[in-house]
């Protein structure tokens, strides 16, 4: 019964395949963001891609290539700008990101409004399951593959740069390069996810499973795996919810991920509310 929409409709299967692919790549990035205490950077970059996508749609119509390129360019510009503002001025990175994303979001909505009724603002912000056509699905799967390969190659510098950026800086480990490369992957994943989830909601698939994973695993590798599994659950259940309850896909998937996060917060194995209440007997030594 729950599986019916996936069996029956090809567009549901495409959306599911795309979301499962991104569930493999986006949550691991989210785990790193949580550990860097940059949980909000995903929001910031998610909002940042909106003006790029909107401008491309206004100029070139609803073309996947144009909108994706516009989103990536706008996201990279904000990531770079905020990074430079943080490293080059007295403003901390989170504060400069807040500044950039407010401007970007306002600019995006203004562009959509100015271009008249040609762009569906709701679909852009909150996603539409029908937006996942074959090219979009290929883009999502390609992004997931590239991200996983990059994570495998760059795992060590990413971990060190996240744990102790000062160490890499002192050792001339080119800390800034790794950080910007990492942010580029974040932008790419958000752009890939926005077709299905919308620019406002894409970040949910990245951050909610990552925050939830902290309550289940004590090692970095474990958290990454748990985050991906939770994201896959949320994708499948969220798409079904979206179909049955007639809710846009973005909010449906994010709500499911949010439910998983609240369960983890309440009853996870590591440092959840329940784990704090239920103190298990201590060892002898």
């Amino acid at each position: 019964m729950l599986l019916d929409p996936f069996l029956e409709f090809a567009f549901m299967r495409r959306a599911l395949a795309g979301c499962l692919a991104l569930s493999l790549s986006a949550p691991p990035l989210g785990v790193f963001l949580v550990l860097r205490r940059l949980s909000l950077i995903g929001d910031a970059l998610g909002h940042a891609i909106l003006p790029g996508v909107a401008l491309a749609a206004a100029l070139f119509g609803l073309s996947l290539v144009a909108m994706s390129a516009g989103g990536v360019l706008a996201g990279l510009a904000v990531a770079l700008g905020a990074g430079l503002a943080a490293r080059g001025t007295a403003l901390r990175e989170d504060a400069s990101l807040a500044g950039f994303y407010l401007v970007a979001l306002a600019l995006g909505v203004a562009i959509v409004s100015a271009s008249g009724g040609r762009i569906d603002l709701m679909a852009l912000l909150f996603g539409a399951v029908l937006a996942v056509d074959d090219p979009a699905l290929l883009f999502m799967a390609g992004t997931a593959s590239v991200t996983l390969i990059m994570l495998a190659i760059l795992w060590r510098p990413f971990v060190i740069e996240t744990f102790d950026p000062g160490f890499l800086r002192a050792a001339r480990g080119r800390g800034a390069v790794w950080h910007l490369g990492f942010l580029a992957l974040v932008v790419l994943n958000l752009v890939a996810a926005f077709h299905a989830l919308g620019t406002l909601m894409a970040v949910g698939l990245m951050m909610l499973p990552a925050t939830a994973a902290r309550f289940w695993a004590a090692t970095l590798g474990g958290q990454v795996v748990v985050a991906s599994v939770l994201a896959m659950l949320a994708s499948a259940a969220g798409l079904a919810l979206s179909f049955h309850a007639d809710v846009p896909t973005g909010p449906a998937i994010v709500l499911t991920a949010g439910a998983l996060w609240i369960v983890s917060l309440a009853a996870g194995r590591e440092g959840s509310l329940l784990a704090r209440v239920l103190r298990r007997p201590h060892y002898a030594g």
Binding site: L35, R37, V159, T162, F163, D164, G166, A217, A218, T219, L220, G222, Q223
Partner: peptide, 13 residues
């Protein structure tokens, strides 16, 4: 560096 801003709960061994 001085008692650093390092996250002492970071999931590393």
């Amino acid at each position: 560096p001085q008692q650093a801003a390092l996250d002492r709960t970071f999931p590393l061994a």
